[in-house]
Design a binder for these strands. Structure first.
Lengths: 224, 224
DNA sequence: GTGCTGGCTCAAAAGCTGCTGAGGGTTTGG
DNA sequence: CCAAACCCTCAGCAGCTTTTGAGCCAGCAC
Protein backbone atom coordinates (compact mmCIF):
# COMPACT_ATOMS: atom_id res chain seq x y z
CA UNK A 1 0.00 0.00 0.00
CA UNK A 2 1.62 3.25 -1.08
CA UNK A 3 1.77 6.37 1.03
CA UNK A 4 -0.79 9.12 0.45
CA UNK A 5 0.32 12.70 0.11
CA UNK A 6 -1.78 15.84 0.03
CA UNK A 7 -0.30 18.75 -1.87
CA UNK A 8 -1.72 22.23 -1.35
CA UNK A 9 -0.32 24.68 -3.89
CA UNK A 10 -2.06 27.51 -5.71
CA UNK A 11 0.29 27.80 -8.66
CA UNK A 12 -1.24 25.32 -11.03
CA UNK A 13 1.84 24.62 -13.11
CA UNK A 14 4.04 23.92 -10.12
CA UNK A 15 1.35 21.78 -8.54
CA UNK A 16 1.01 19.75 -11.69
CA UNK A 17 4.76 19.25 -11.91
CA UNK A 18 5.12 18.09 -8.33
CA UNK A 19 2.11 15.84 -8.66
CA UNK A 20 3.62 14.11 -11.67
CA UNK A 21 6.95 13.59 -9.99
CA UNK A 22 5.49 12.21 -6.80
CA UNK A 23 3.13 9.97 -8.71
CA UNK A 24 5.98 8.53 -10.71
CA UNK A 25 7.72 7.72 -7.41
CA UNK A 26 4.76 5.57 -6.55
CA UNK A 27 2.97 7.81 -4.07
CA UNK A 28 -0.71 8.41 -4.19
CA UNK A 29 -1.35 12.16 -4.46
CA UNK A 30 -4.28 14.49 -4.00
CA UNK A 31 -4.05 18.19 -4.79
CA UNK A 32 -5.85 21.26 -3.47
CA UNK A 33 -5.36 24.72 -4.91
CA UNK A 34 -6.20 26.83 -1.89
CA UNK A 35 -5.74 26.69 1.84
CA UNK A 36 -9.32 26.21 2.84
CA UNK A 37 -9.92 23.29 0.50
CA UNK A 38 -6.62 21.81 1.62
CA UNK A 39 -7.55 22.04 5.27
CA UNK A 40 -10.90 20.40 4.64
CA UNK A 41 -9.36 17.59 2.64
CA UNK A 42 -6.69 17.01 5.26
CA UNK A 43 -9.35 16.70 7.91
CA UNK A 44 -11.68 14.49 5.93
CA UNK A 45 -9.12 11.96 4.80
CA UNK A 46 -5.85 12.51 6.62
CA UNK A 47 -2.89 11.89 4.32
CA UNK A 48 0.41 10.34 5.41
CA UNK A 49 2.18 13.57 4.53
CA UNK A 50 1.16 17.13 3.78
CA UNK A 51 3.01 19.49 1.46
CA UNK A 52 1.86 23.09 1.92
CA UNK A 53 2.68 26.15 -0.04
CA UNK A 54 3.22 28.98 2.37
CA UNK A 55 1.98 31.93 0.34
CA UNK A 56 -1.51 31.39 -0.96
CA UNK A 57 -4.42 33.76 -1.44
CA UNK A 58 -6.95 33.35 1.34
CA UNK A 59 -5.70 30.95 3.97
CA UNK A 60 -1.90 30.64 4.00
CA UNK A 61 -0.12 27.34 4.40
CA UNK A 62 1.10 28.44 7.77
CA UNK A 63 -2.45 28.99 8.91
CA UNK A 64 -3.53 25.59 7.60
CA UNK A 65 -0.70 24.01 9.52
CA UNK A 66 -1.53 25.82 12.73
CA UNK A 67 -5.18 24.86 12.52
CA UNK A 68 -4.42 21.23 11.87
CA UNK A 69 -2.07 21.09 14.82
CA UNK A 70 -4.63 22.80 16.97
CA UNK A 71 -6.98 19.89 16.46
CA UNK A 72 -4.31 17.38 17.37
CA UNK A 73 -3.18 16.25 13.94
CA UNK A 74 0.33 14.87 13.83
CA UNK A 75 0.68 14.46 10.09
CA UNK A 76 4.16 15.49 8.93
CA UNK A 77 4.10 18.88 7.20
CA UNK A 78 6.57 20.21 4.67
CA UNK A 79 6.25 23.90 3.84
CA UNK A 80 7.14 25.28 0.44
CA UNK A 81 8.22 28.88 0.60
CA UNK A 82 9.81 31.54 -1.49
CA UNK A 83 10.74 33.43 1.60
CA UNK A 84 14.25 32.91 2.68
CA UNK A 85 14.35 35.05 5.71
CA UNK A 86 15.27 33.58 9.02
CA UNK A 87 12.36 35.00 10.94
CA UNK A 88 9.95 33.31 8.56
CA UNK A 89 11.61 29.97 8.83
CA UNK A 90 11.46 30.20 12.57
CA UNK A 91 7.77 31.07 12.46
CA UNK A 92 7.08 28.10 10.22
CA UNK A 93 8.83 25.57 12.39
CA UNK A 94 7.31 26.98 15.55
CA UNK A 95 3.85 26.82 14.02
CA UNK A 96 4.22 23.09 13.87
CA UNK A 97 5.70 22.45 10.44
CA UNK A 98 8.26 19.71 10.39
CA UNK A 99 10.33 20.99 7.55
CA UNK A 100 10.44 23.50 4.76
CA UNK A 101 11.88 23.71 1.29
CA UNK A 102 12.85 27.02 -0.19
CA UNK A 103 11.70 27.87 -3.71
CA UNK A 104 13.12 27.41 -6.18
CA UNK A 105 14.04 23.91 -5.17
CA UNK A 106 15.23 20.89 -7.06
CA UNK A 107 12.68 18.10 -7.19
CA UNK A 108 15.35 15.73 -5.88
CA UNK A 109 15.55 17.63 -2.67
CA UNK A 110 11.82 17.58 -2.18
CA UNK A 111 11.76 13.85 -2.84
CA UNK A 112 14.51 13.24 -0.30
CA UNK A 113 12.60 15.12 2.34
CA UNK A 114 9.40 13.31 1.50
CA UNK A 115 11.23 10.01 1.91
CA UNK A 116 12.75 11.10 5.18
CA UNK A 117 9.45 12.10 6.71
CA UNK A 118 7.52 9.16 5.42
CA UNK A 119 10.15 6.78 6.72
CA UNK A 120 9.57 8.16 10.17
CA UNK A 121 5.85 7.98 10.01
CA UNK A 122 5.13 5.15 7.71
CA UNK A 123 7.41 2.85 9.66
CA UNK A 124 4.21 1.88 11.39
CA UNK A 125 2.99 -0.40 8.68
CA UNK A 126 5.28 -1.40 5.89
CA UNK A 127 5.07 -4.70 4.11
CA UNK A 128 8.67 -5.71 4.33
CA UNK A 129 9.87 -5.90 7.89
CA UNK A 130 13.49 -6.40 8.74
CA UNK A 131 15.52 -6.97 11.81
CA UNK A 132 19.16 -7.86 11.74
CA UNK A 133 19.51 -10.69 9.21
CA UNK A 134 15.84 -11.57 9.49
CA UNK A 135 13.17 -10.40 7.05
CA UNK A 136 9.46 -10.92 7.05
CA UNK A 137 7.33 -10.06 4.06
CA UNK A 138 3.70 -9.50 4.90
CA UNK A 139 2.32 -9.63 1.43
CA UNK A 140 4.07 -12.79 0.30
CA UNK A 141 4.18 -14.19 3.83
CA UNK A 142 7.78 -15.19 3.36
CA UNK A 143 10.40 -15.21 6.06
CA UNK A 144 14.13 -15.32 5.47
CA UNK A 145 17.11 -15.50 7.72
CA UNK A 146 20.53 -14.71 6.26
CA UNK A 147 19.38 -15.75 2.84
CA UNK A 148 17.65 -19.03 3.50
CA UNK A 149 13.90 -19.23 3.41
CA UNK A 150 11.95 -20.32 6.47
CA UNK A 151 8.55 -21.97 6.47
CA UNK A 152 6.23 -20.84 9.25
CA UNK A 153 2.74 -21.91 10.18
CA UNK A 154 0.02 -19.29 10.50
CA UNK A 155 0.37 -18.82 14.23
CA UNK A 156 4.14 -18.76 14.10
CA UNK A 157 3.97 -16.11 11.42
CA UNK A 158 1.59 -13.94 13.38
CA UNK A 159 3.76 -14.13 16.44
CA UNK A 160 6.94 -13.26 14.59
CA UNK A 161 5.12 -10.48 12.75
CA UNK A 162 4.11 -8.94 16.05
CA UNK A 163 7.58 -9.17 17.48
CA UNK A 164 9.37 -7.85 14.41
CA UNK A 165 7.05 -4.88 14.14
CA UNK A 166 8.16 -3.79 17.60
CA UNK A 167 11.89 -4.40 17.48
CA UNK A 168 13.82 -3.94 20.73
CA UNK A 169 10.58 -3.32 22.57
CA UNK A 170 9.65 -5.74 25.27
CA UNK A 171 6.25 -7.29 24.58
CA UNK A 172 4.34 -8.71 27.50
CA UNK A 173 2.66 -12.09 27.51
CA UNK A 174 -0.68 -10.38 27.79
CA UNK A 175 -0.02 -8.26 24.74
CA UNK A 176 0.96 -11.34 22.78
CA UNK A 177 -2.11 -13.29 23.86
CA UNK A 178 -4.33 -10.37 23.05
CA UNK A 179 -2.81 -9.74 19.64
CA UNK A 180 -2.02 -13.20 18.37
CA UNK A 181 -4.62 -15.38 20.07
CA UNK A 182 -7.16 -12.65 20.48
CA UNK A 183 -8.67 -13.66 23.73
CA UNK A 184 -7.85 -13.75 27.40
CA UNK A 185 -6.73 -17.18 28.23
CA UNK A 186 -8.64 -18.82 31.01
CA UNK A 187 -6.51 -20.56 33.57
CA UNK A 188 -2.98 -21.08 32.52
CA UNK A 189 -1.52 -22.20 29.32
CA UNK A 190 2.06 -22.27 28.18
CA UNK A 191 1.11 -21.76 24.61
CA UNK A 192 3.33 -18.74 24.21
CA UNK A 193 6.40 -20.60 25.40
CA UNK A 194 5.60 -23.40 23.03
CA UNK A 195 5.32 -21.13 20.03
CA UNK A 196 8.38 -19.14 20.95
CA UNK A 197 10.18 -22.45 21.03
CA UNK A 198 8.93 -23.40 17.59
CA UNK A 199 10.12 -20.08 16.23
CA UNK A 200 13.49 -20.38 17.88
CA UNK A 201 13.98 -23.86 16.51
CA UNK A 202 13.29 -22.63 13.01
CA UNK A 203 15.16 -19.34 13.26
CA UNK A 204 18.25 -20.83 14.83
CA UNK A 205 18.44 -23.99 12.76
CA UNK A 206 22.09 -23.36 12.09
CA UNK A 207 23.44 -22.09 15.38
CA UNK A 208 22.61 -18.53 14.48
CA UNK A 209 22.50 -16.12 17.36
CA UNK A 210 19.28 -15.87 19.31
CA UNK A 211 17.02 -12.99 18.29
CA UNK A 212 13.97 -13.71 20.41
CA UNK A 213 15.08 -13.01 23.95
CA UNK A 214 13.16 -13.93 27.05
CA UNK A 215 12.51 -11.17 29.56
CA UNK A 216 11.81 -13.14 32.67
CA UNK A 217 8.61 -12.18 34.44
CA UNK A 218 7.47 -9.97 31.58
CA UNK A 219 7.55 -11.33 28.06
CA UNK A 220 9.77 -11.43 25.02
CA UNK A 221 11.75 -9.02 22.91
CA UNK A 222 13.46 -9.05 19.54
CA UNK A 223 17.02 -8.01 20.25
CA UNK A 224 20.52 -8.90 19.09
CA UNK B 1 13.84 17.96 33.55
CA UNK B 2 15.52 19.69 30.63
CA UNK B 3 16.30 18.02 27.36
CA UNK B 4 19.81 16.77 26.74
CA UNK B 5 21.62 17.59 23.53
CA UNK B 6 24.85 16.20 22.22
CA UNK B 7 26.84 18.49 19.91
CA UNK B 8 29.58 17.04 17.75
CA UNK B 9 31.61 19.77 16.09
CA UNK B 10 35.34 19.93 15.48
CA UNK B 11 35.66 23.70 15.16
CA UNK B 12 36.19 24.68 18.75
CA UNK B 13 35.02 28.26 18.50
CA UNK B 14 31.80 27.39 16.78
CA UNK B 15 31.18 24.54 19.22
CA UNK B 16 31.69 26.85 22.13
CA UNK B 17 29.32 29.43 20.68
CA UNK B 18 26.53 26.92 20.06
CA UNK B 19 27.05 25.38 23.46
CA UNK B 20 26.61 28.75 25.15
CA UNK B 21 23.48 29.56 23.21
CA UNK B 22 21.85 26.23 23.85
CA UNK B 23 22.80 26.30 27.50
CA UNK B 24 21.23 29.71 27.90
CA UNK B 25 18.04 28.29 26.41
CA UNK B 26 17.99 25.83 29.28
CA UNK B 27 19.15 22.69 27.52
CA UNK B 28 21.74 20.42 28.99
CA UNK B 29 24.59 20.09 26.49
CA UNK B 30 27.53 17.78 26.03
CA UNK B 31 30.13 18.38 23.36
CA UNK B 32 32.45 16.09 21.42
CA UNK B 33 35.09 17.35 19.02
CA UNK B 34 35.36 14.37 16.72
CA UNK B 35 33.06 11.81 15.20
CA UNK B 36 34.32 8.78 17.02
CA UNK B 37 34.03 10.36 20.45
CA UNK B 38 30.59 11.64 19.50
CA UNK B 39 29.41 8.22 18.44
CA UNK B 40 30.65 6.67 21.65
CA UNK B 41 29.01 9.32 23.77
CA UNK B 42 25.75 9.02 21.89
CA UNK B 43 25.74 5.29 22.52
CA UNK B 44 26.70 5.47 26.14
CA UNK B 45 24.19 8.03 27.23
CA UNK B 46 21.70 8.65 24.48
CA UNK B 47 20.77 12.35 24.25
CA UNK B 48 17.34 13.66 23.30
CA UNK B 49 18.81 15.31 20.24
CA UNK B 50 22.04 15.09 18.30
CA UNK B 51 23.65 17.96 16.38
CA UNK B 52 26.34 16.72 14.04
CA UNK B 53 28.81 18.64 11.97
CA UNK B 54 29.05 16.94 8.62
CA UNK B 55 32.69 17.62 7.74
CA UNK B 56 35.03 16.44 10.43
CA UNK B 57 38.46 14.85 10.25
CA UNK B 58 38.23 11.11 10.88
CA UNK B 59 34.65 9.99 11.06
CA UNK B 60 32.23 12.37 9.34
CA UNK B 61 28.91 13.34 10.84
CA UNK B 62 27.16 11.44 8.11
CA UNK B 63 29.00 8.30 9.09
CA UNK B 64 28.15 8.80 12.75
CA UNK B 65 24.52 9.15 11.82
CA UNK B 66 24.50 6.07 9.66
CA UNK B 67 26.13 3.97 12.36
CA UNK B 68 23.72 5.12 15.02
CA UNK B 69 20.74 4.32 12.82
CA UNK B 70 22.23 0.93 12.04
CA UNK B 71 21.98 0.00 15.69
CA UNK B 72 18.38 1.10 15.93
CA UNK B 73 18.80 4.53 17.46
CA UNK B 74 15.94 6.88 16.76
CA UNK B 75 17.41 10.02 18.27
CA UNK B 76 16.65 13.07 16.09
CA UNK B 77 19.71 14.21 14.17
CA UNK B 78 20.40 17.69 12.81
CA UNK B 79 23.33 17.95 10.43
CA UNK B 80 25.41 21.11 10.17
CA UNK B 81 26.94 21.51 6.77
CA UNK B 82 28.77 24.06 4.69
CA UNK B 83 27.84 22.15 1.59
CA UNK B 84 24.92 23.58 -0.19
CA UNK B 85 24.61 21.17 -3.04
CA UNK B 86 21.46 19.24 -3.56
CA UNK B 87 23.09 15.86 -3.91
CA UNK B 88 24.64 16.27 -0.49
CA UNK B 89 21.40 17.23 1.15
CA UNK B 90 19.77 14.20 -0.34
CA UNK B 91 22.54 11.92 0.90
CA UNK B 92 22.21 13.33 4.39
CA UNK B 93 18.50 12.86 4.64
CA UNK B 94 18.66 9.40 3.12
CA UNK B 95 21.33 8.39 5.60
CA UNK B 96 18.83 8.92 8.36
CA UNK B 97 19.36 12.52 9.38
CA UNK B 98 16.16 14.34 10.19
CA UNK B 99 17.22 17.78 9.20
CA UNK B 100 20.19 19.89 8.25
CA UNK B 101 21.23 23.48 8.62
CA UNK B 102 23.52 25.11 6.10
CA UNK B 103 26.49 27.08 7.39
CA UNK B 104 26.67 29.91 7.92
CA UNK B 105 23.37 29.87 9.80
CA UNK B 106 21.75 32.18 12.25
CA UNK B 107 21.55 30.82 15.74
CA UNK B 108 17.84 31.58 15.76
CA UNK B 109 17.28 29.16 12.97
CA UNK B 110 19.17 26.39 14.73
CA UNK B 111 17.18 27.02 17.89
CA UNK B 112 13.88 26.82 16.03
CA UNK B 113 14.86 23.48 14.54
CA UNK B 114 15.99 22.19 17.89
CA UNK B 115 12.62 23.13 19.36
CA UNK B 116 10.74 21.52 16.50
CA UNK B 117 12.55 18.20 16.81
CA UNK B 118 12.45 18.04 20.57
CA UNK B 119 8.76 18.77 20.58
CA UNK B 120 8.10 15.97 18.19
CA UNK B 121 10.29 13.46 19.92
CA UNK B 122 9.07 14.13 23.37
CA UNK B 123 5.59 13.40 22.19
CA UNK B 124 6.27 9.95 20.90
CA UNK B 125 8.80 8.77 23.44
CA UNK B 126 7.73 9.41 26.99
CA UNK B 127 9.15 6.04 27.89
CA UNK B 128 12.72 7.06 28.42
CA UNK B 129 13.32 8.17 31.98
CA UNK B 130 16.56 9.77 33.05
CA UNK B 131 18.20 10.86 36.22
CA UNK B 132 21.78 11.99 36.40
CA UNK B 133 23.81 9.38 34.52
CA UNK B 134 21.08 6.80 34.92
CA UNK B 135 18.55 5.98 32.23
CA UNK B 136 15.62 3.62 32.29
CA UNK B 137 13.76 2.74 29.14
CA UNK B 138 10.28 1.44 29.79
CA UNK B 139 9.62 -0.01 26.39
CA UNK B 140 12.86 -1.90 25.97
CA UNK B 141 13.19 -2.38 29.72
CA UNK B 142 16.84 -1.46 29.51
CA UNK B 143 18.71 0.34 32.24
CA UNK B 144 22.03 2.08 31.76
CA UNK B 145 24.38 3.85 34.06
CA UNK B 146 27.11 5.99 32.51
CA UNK B 147 27.11 3.86 29.43
CA UNK B 148 27.13 0.35 30.79
CA UNK B 149 24.03 -1.72 30.61
CA UNK B 150 22.51 -3.09 33.80
CA UNK B 151 20.40 -6.23 34.06
CA UNK B 152 17.51 -6.03 36.49
CA UNK B 153 14.91 -8.57 37.55
CA UNK B 154 11.23 -7.71 37.28
CA UNK B 155 10.87 -6.46 40.85
CA UNK B 156 14.10 -4.54 40.78
CA UNK B 157 12.96 -2.85 37.60
CA UNK B 158 9.59 -1.90 39.03
CA UNK B 159 11.18 -0.42 42.10
CA UNK B 160 13.70 1.62 40.15
CA UNK B 161 10.98 2.71 37.73
CA UNK B 162 8.96 4.03 40.64
CA UNK B 163 11.88 5.90 42.14
CA UNK B 164 13.11 7.39 38.88
CA UNK B 165 9.66 8.64 37.97
CA UNK B 166 9.65 10.70 41.17
CA UNK B 167 13.16 12.11 41.23
CA UNK B 168 14.22 14.04 44.33
CA UNK B 169 10.92 13.18 45.98
CA UNK B 170 11.02 11.15 49.14
CA UNK B 171 8.99 7.97 48.76
CA UNK B 172 7.71 6.29 51.89
CA UNK B 173 7.96 2.59 52.55
CA UNK B 174 4.20 2.34 52.42
CA UNK B 175 4.05 3.93 49.02
CA UNK B 176 6.67 1.53 47.74
CA UNK B 177 4.88 -1.50 49.15
CA UNK B 178 1.62 -0.33 47.72
CA UNK B 179 3.00 0.42 44.28
CA UNK B 180 5.56 -2.30 43.76
CA UNK B 181 4.20 -5.14 45.86
CA UNK B 182 0.61 -4.08 45.64
CA UNK B 183 -0.58 -4.94 49.08
CA UNK B 184 -0.29 -3.87 52.70
CA UNK B 185 2.23 -6.06 54.30
CA UNK B 186 1.05 -7.97 57.33
CA UNK B 187 3.58 -8.09 60.12
CA UNK B 188 7.02 -6.97 59.19
CA UNK B 189 9.28 -7.78 56.36
CA UNK B 190 12.55 -6.28 55.29
CA UNK B 191 11.83 -6.87 51.68
CA UNK B 192 12.27 -3.26 50.68
CA UNK B 193 15.69 -3.02 52.27
CA UNK B 194 16.68 -6.19 50.50
CA UNK B 195 15.63 -4.89 47.11
CA UNK B 196 17.17 -1.48 47.67
CA UNK B 197 20.36 -3.33 48.43
CA UNK B 198 20.13 -5.35 45.23
CA UNK B 199 19.66 -2.16 43.25
CA UNK B 200 22.52 -0.39 44.96
CA UNK B 201 24.84 -3.31 44.32
CA UNK B 202 24.02 -3.23 40.64
CA UNK B 203 23.96 0.57 40.24
CA UNK B 204 27.18 1.17 42.13
CA UNK B 205 29.16 -1.73 40.77
CA UNK B 206 32.03 0.59 39.98
CA UNK B 207 32.20 2.89 42.97
CA UNK B 208 29.80 5.31 41.37
CA UNK B 209 28.15 7.76 43.69
CA UNK B 210 25.05 6.65 45.52
CA UNK B 211 21.78 7.69 43.87
CA UNK B 212 19.30 5.87 46.08
CA UNK B 213 19.48 7.65 49.44
CA UNK B 214 17.95 6.41 52.65
CA UNK B 215 15.71 8.81 54.53
CA UNK B 216 15.76 7.39 57.99
CA UNK B 217 12.36 6.76 59.46
CA UNK B 218 10.58 7.54 56.20
CA UNK B 219 11.73 5.85 53.05
CA UNK B 220 14.01 6.42 50.09
CA UNK B 221 14.75 9.10 47.54
CA UNK B 222 16.62 9.37 44.26
CA UNK B 223 19.07 12.21 44.74
CA UNK B 224 22.65 13.04 43.73
C1' DG C 1 28.53 4.39 77.72
C1' DT C 2 23.95 1.81 77.32
C1' DG C 3 19.94 0.65 75.28
C1' DC C 4 16.85 1.18 71.53
C1' DT C 5 15.30 1.63 66.86
C1' DG C 6 15.66 1.37 62.10
C1' DG C 7 18.28 -0.08 58.46
C1' DC C 8 21.78 -3.29 56.33
C1' DT C 9 23.78 -7.73 55.15
C1' DC C 10 23.95 -12.46 54.17
C1' DA C 11 22.52 -16.86 52.93
C1' DA C 12 19.18 -20.42 52.82
C1' DA C 13 14.45 -21.75 51.75
C1' DA C 14 10.44 -21.32 49.21
C1' DG C 15 8.17 -20.22 45.15
C1' DC C 16 7.82 -19.46 40.31
C1' DT C 17 8.86 -19.19 35.46
C1' DG C 18 10.04 -20.69 31.36
C1' DC C 19 11.87 -24.66 28.68
C1' DT C 20 11.29 -29.10 26.99
C1' DG C 21 9.50 -33.54 25.05
C1' DA C 22 5.57 -36.11 24.35
C1' DG C 23 1.05 -36.67 22.87
C1' DG C 24 -3.85 -35.93 21.55
C1' DG C 25 -7.51 -33.56 19.07
C1' DT C 26 -8.54 -31.10 14.79
C1' DT C 27 -8.09 -29.47 10.19
C1' DT C 28 -6.31 -29.78 5.51
C1' DG C 29 -5.13 -31.82 1.24
C1' DG C 30 -4.37 -35.68 -1.69
C1' DC D 1 -10.50 -41.99 3.82
C1' DC D 2 -5.86 -41.46 5.33
C1' DA D 3 -1.84 -39.06 6.33
C1' DA D 4 0.34 -35.02 7.29
C1' DA D 5 0.37 -30.71 9.28
C1' DC D 6 -1.11 -27.88 12.76
C1' DC D 7 -2.68 -26.25 17.23
C1' DC D 8 -2.86 -26.87 21.84
C1' DT D 9 -2.27 -29.27 26.57
C1' DC D 10 0.25 -31.44 30.08
C1' DA D 11 3.81 -32.62 33.44
C1' DG D 12 8.57 -32.61 34.91
C1' DC D 13 12.52 -30.09 35.70
C1' DA D 14 16.26 -26.71 36.05
C1' DG D 15 17.41 -22.37 37.17
C1' DC D 16 16.28 -17.99 38.61
C1' DT D 17 13.69 -14.78 41.55
C1' DT D 18 11.58 -13.62 45.62
C1' DT D 19 10.99 -13.92 50.37
C1' DT D 20 12.30 -14.94 54.98
C1' DG D 21 14.91 -14.83 59.19
C1' DA D 22 18.69 -14.03 62.00
C1' DG D 23 22.46 -11.31 63.21
C1' DC D 24 24.88 -7.03 62.73
C1' DC D 25 25.72 -2.06 62.51
C1' DA D 26 24.78 3.01 62.84
C1' DG D 27 22.56 6.77 64.72
C1' DC D 28 20.16 8.73 68.45
C1' DA D 29 18.18 9.57 73.26
C1' DC D 30 19.26 9.28 77.71
Amino acid sequence: MSATILLVEDEERLARFIELELTSEGYSISVAHDGFTGLTMARESPPDLLILDWMMPGMTGLEVCRRLRATGSKVPVILLTAKDEVSDRVAGLDAGADDYVVKPFSIEELLARVRAHLRRNHEDNPDLLQFDDLTLNRSSREVHRSGRSIELTAKEFELLDYLISHPRQVITRDQILEKVWGYDFMGDSNIIEVYVRYLRLKLEENQEKRLIQTVRGVGYVLRE
